[in-house]
């Protein structure tokens, strides 16, 4: 049998060795993994404007290509809830290192009271046109769901959408991401009706047509996830309304 001193010594030495090894590895790979996370995020944003990227599919674009498109064609704007632009320094003051819209953590923002949130907005320049990509976040069945919605230059028509989720059921709720026909249904839908009244896009059970500008078909068997998408689309898109009104009245 070992003495107590031996046990304490053994455990202490082992923990120290393990701590040193893991810290070294973590620090050594930190830059790489941070960059990977940033590329992952940018790729998700670009998948909302898949159609406008020509024959390039963001899913298969190389890492460098993603970074290039992002830095050359996208302008990042951070907004507060009143529609005013927030400066880089102010975003950094909120704890988001880097201070750009891409550094805003939507998960943290969702926990804040509505009035205090900041919103990321990405303006994608196709060369002839401007596309506004907004980020929305809500709750699915098991965990959070989120999406990037691309609005045409009329700030009304949706030209692309991409959704993702934390842990929705594969084959049911996870279809919002896995089945491209779901985000595709959002294309051509409109946020406002002819009278300028806000509707956003809601999910309904079956029977929508191309002319139903504010409705998409939901996924059967995934009622809660679909309701989450509807809620997120109605609430999340409205956050950007003050800013859109501002630039339209200019």
């Amino acid at each position: 049998m070992h003495s107590t001193n031996y046990i304490v010594g053994f455990v202490a030495i082992m923990t120290t060795v393990v701590a040193i090894v893991l810290t070294a590895l973590f620090l050594g790979l930190k830059e790489r993994s941070d960059q990977n996370a940033a590329i992952f995020n940018k790729r998700a944003i670009l998948s909302a404007v898949k159609d406008q990227l020509g024959d390039q599919d963001p899913k298969y674009m190389g890492d460098q290509e993603v970074l290039d498109v992002f830095s050359n064609q996208i302008q990042q704007i951070s907004l507060d809830m009143s529609g005013a632009e927030v400066s880089t320094a102010d975003i950094e003051a909120l704890g988001y290192k880097g201070g750009q819209a891409e550094h805003i953590d939507m998960k943290k923002e969702k926990k804040k009271p509505e009035g205090e949130r900041v919103l990321p907005l990405y303006v994608f320049d196709t060369g002839s046109d401007k596309i506004y990509i907004i980020s929305v976040r809500g709750n699915g069945l098991w965990d959070e769901i989120w999406g990037n919605i691309a609005l045409g230059s009329d700030l009304n028509t949706i030209v692309g959408a991409a959704f993702d989720h934390q842990g929705e059921t594969p084959g049911l709720g996870a279809e919002i991401k896995d089945n491209p026909s779901f985000p595709n249904m959002f294309k051509g839908k409109k946020i406002y009706d002819e009278n300028g009244k806000y509707h956003s896009v809601i999910g309904v059970k079956g029977g929508t047509t191309k002319e139903d500008f504010h409705k998409v078909d939901v996924i059967s068997g995934a009622t809660v996830t679909s309701d989450g998408v509807t809620e997120m689309m109605v609430r999340g898109v409205k956050y950007y309304e003050p800013y859109f009104n501002k630039i339209q009245s200019k």
Binding site: M14, T15, V18, V21, L22, L25, F26, L29, R32, S33, N36, A37, I39, F40
Partner: peptide, 20 residues
Amino acid sequence: VIIATLVTIVELVLKGFNYP
């Protein structure tokens, strides 16, 4: 502790080299 260390190594390496 040994298992957890190795698993953390796997996790960090994956995060660095195959993020998706």
